[in-house]
């Protein structure tokens, strides 16, 4: 696995990126989705330059975190970033094994490191975000929510 090269792990260009502490906020102008990358995911995403191997990313992340990072954790991060559409095809050849979060957590050398996490929301249009008038509310929802 460590020999595999990320041929197309290119960061998308049509995004707005802001750094907030150790996190990255990424706004995808194409899909109007906003993503929050926790520090681990942000670091992996930052290192995706189209020519770095998974092993190299794991090593560099480990150096930054002062703790060894297993390649399974990097695969998990890449999987999350790819699902969010933040990187293009991240591997060639055989499909990588994406570990479950539970497995990845077991491979974390220290509890000080958090698993990579990409949180995504769809930014609403003004019409979607607008409040409906009270009387247009479906009757069945009135009994389910408090307010």
């Amino acid at each position: 696995m460590s020999e595999r090269v990320l041929n197309s792990a290119l960061k998308r260009k049509d995004t707005i990126v802001r750094r907030l502490g150790d996190e990255f906020l990424v706004y995808d102008l194409k899909t109007n989705k906003a993503h929050c990358l926790n520090p681990m995911a942000a670091e992996v995403w930052r290192l995706c330059e189209g020519k770095t191997t998974v092993a190299e990313i794991a090593r560099k992340v480990g150096e930054t975190a002062n703790a060894p990072v297993d390649e399974a954790v990097i695969e998990l991060a890449l999987s999350g970033l790819q699902k969010a559409g933040l990187i293009e095809q991240h591997s060639t050849g055989s499909e990588p094994m994406i570990p479950s979060r539970r497995v990845a957590l077991g491979k974390m050398a220290t509890a000080a490191l958090a698993l990579p996490l990409v949180t995504t929301i769809l930014v609403p249009t003004a019409a979607q975000a607008a409040s409906p008038l009270q009387k247009r509310r479906p009757a069945r929802r009135q009994s389910r929510s408090e307010g």
């Binding site: 707005i16 907030l20 502490g21 996190e23 990255f24 906020l25 706004y27 102008l29 109007n32 906003a34 929050c36 990358l37 926790n38 949180t119 929301i121 769809l122 930014v123 609403p124 249009t125 003004a126 975000a129 607008a130």
Partner: peptide, 22 residues
């Protein structure tokens, strides 16, 4: 939650964020 998640929560309920994302 982290401040970033707070920003997402605001974005998800904002009216004109899509037209002025920056």
């Amino acid at each position: 939650l982290s401040p970033g998640r707070g920003v997402l929560a605001l974005l998800a309920n904002a009216l004109t964020a899509r037209s002025r994302p920056v």
